[in-house]
Each structure stands twice: as C-alpha cells, then as structure tokens.
Nucleic acid binder design. Structure first.
Lengths: 136, 136
DNA sequence: TGTTATCCTATGGAATTAGTAGGATATTAT
DNA sequence: ATAATATCCTACTAATTCCATAGGATAACA
C-alpha cells in the first residue's frame, strides 16, 4: 500500500504543476485545498525540496515551486523520493539492490522472477508518466 | 515492499508445487530447505490452509499439501491471501474498495488515475501467472 | 524591526511486522 | 491404551515504520 506521505506528496506536486505561473505557493494553501495536515505536508515538501524537485522561498510571498517543467518530472523520480524503491523485493531493485538473507541462489528463486516482471511493468508506467500527465 | 510473510509463503507454496507426489510435507522440512524460521512458517502455512489453498494432516506422516493443481492456483489469489489488496490505494481496489478521506472527487484525483494503471498491470501479471509457472 | 513563511530537530502514539512461547488437539504406531 | 508425532491456536513481544505534532531557529520582505 502507498503511504500517505507519497499520496500527499504527489497531490501537492500536482497542485503546483497546475499553477499557471510558477510562483511560490504556501504550504497552508496546498494544505487547505488538498485536505492535508499542515505540519505533515510541511515535512513532505521539505523532503521534496531536499531531493531537488522543489525550490522554496521564505518570508512574505514565499512558498514552494517546481524547479522543472512538469513534463520533465517523471513519476519514477517522484516515487523513489517519496516511497523509496519501486521494486517489491530488494534483490530485484535497480537502485537499492541488496541480496536476500534466505536466498542461496537468486536464479532459482521463484519470488525473484515474478518480482522482476512486476518491477518492469511498474517501471514502465512510472517512466512513461510525467507530472504533467497527472494534471487531469 | 513485499512482506517476509508473503515471500516465505510463496516459497513454501512453490516448494509444495515442486513435489512429484502430493503427499504431506512437514513444516520442518520446508523450514530447513528454504531457511525460514519454523514458528513463523507455521503461522504462514496456517493462514494458507485457512484460506483454502492448503490441506493438512496431523500426526506421523502428516504435514501440508496443495489442494489444487499448481496450474490452477493463480498468483492473484496467493497475493491477496498473503499480502492483502493488490491495489496500492484502497480507492482503486476491486476487492477491498474504500473511499479516501481526503478525496472529495475520485475522478479528479491524480493519484487515483495513476494507481489504476499500476493496479491493472500488476493484476495482469498475477492473473497470468500460476504457481506452476513459478516452478521454473 | 516586526511580520511572514520556511527550516529543522525532537518527540509520541498507533499500527504493522517478524517473529517466539507454550500448551491443546488430532493422528498414527506400538 | 498409550506414547510419539505433527499440526492447531492463542497470546505475547521487540523492533520498526507511519502519521503526524510541537516549538523554536532562520531567512526574506515591508
């Protein structure tokens, strides 16, 4: 299941992508519009900023804004930043690979093969979808 | 990420599907072969039995066995029993649908649309894969 | 020099995960 | 009968993750 962090994060990014101009939007504005706890959203936007997806401005007229064109923000990036690995087991993860403790031989593992298929199909979807596509 | 319960469960089912004859296999045998904690595996096999996938026999010569031909056990069933909903958000779940608290309109939700795609592609994989396919 | 809004660390409750413990129950063999 | 075998079942626990919340520090603007 998708964490609320990821869900809220995507909603907030979509909200920003919808803006006509890319001027800063306050946390409180997004919080109200999307019914997300202000403090929780604050922490989510902070990680999105640290990951390089968002820029921010302090003080009056401040807020968060996208650093790239929504067309150029792929959902693979968004998912990895918010949710972590796209793979369902670390032994099939491209970016966070780790060997399984209980598997002597990956090639023999039934779960491994199945999860490679799942990873690839999800990767295809996230790779072909940009933030711009999510704006209805 | 896939829970260990699901991972171990699939491995155990695959182990049973590999057997030449469908005679009962003891928990301890699977536990040793697949390097899974005996007690943990016991609880997993119990849920698999309660879900109708496995039969069991007590006493000497007892153990667990598949109730159907591996060809007829689809991974959709296995995943739902072990991991729960296949959908990543309950608002796109076919079997466990629930409305989101924060969404006034699903049709307008950017996450909703994306997750329908993910659900469908995963459902396709799990639906087209049977336990027999996992026995390489 | 206030006011505004993000920045950042720390904390906490609830839920989930990954087991463990130990006795009850049913089946088989002697 | 009875001892041995193996599942059945409930309850418990430790660790981790999730979903926030609190509150002050910092930076920008009027």
């Amino acid at each position: 299941m998708l964490s609320k962090k990821t869900k809220y994060g995507i909603k907030a990014l979509t909200y920003l992508a919808k803006q006509e101009q890319n001027t800063p939007v306050q946390i409180a504005t997004i919080s109200k519009s999307e019914t997300i706890s202000l403090k929780f959203l604050e922490s989510i936007l902070l990680t999105l900023r640290k990951s390089g997806l968002l820029g921010s401005k302090k003080g009056k007229g401040g807020g968060y804004y996208l650093l790239k064109d929504p067309k150029d923000i792929k959902m693979t990036t968004v998912m990895r930043v918010l949710e972590g690995p796209i793979a369902m087991v670390s032994c099939v993860s491209l970016n966070y690979y780790e060997k399984c403790d209980d598997c002597p031989d990956e090639a023999e593992c039934s779960v491994h093969h199945l999860m490679i298929q799942v990873r690839d199909s999800n990767l295809k979807i996230y790779g072909e979808t940009s933030l711009a596509d999510l704006v209805h």
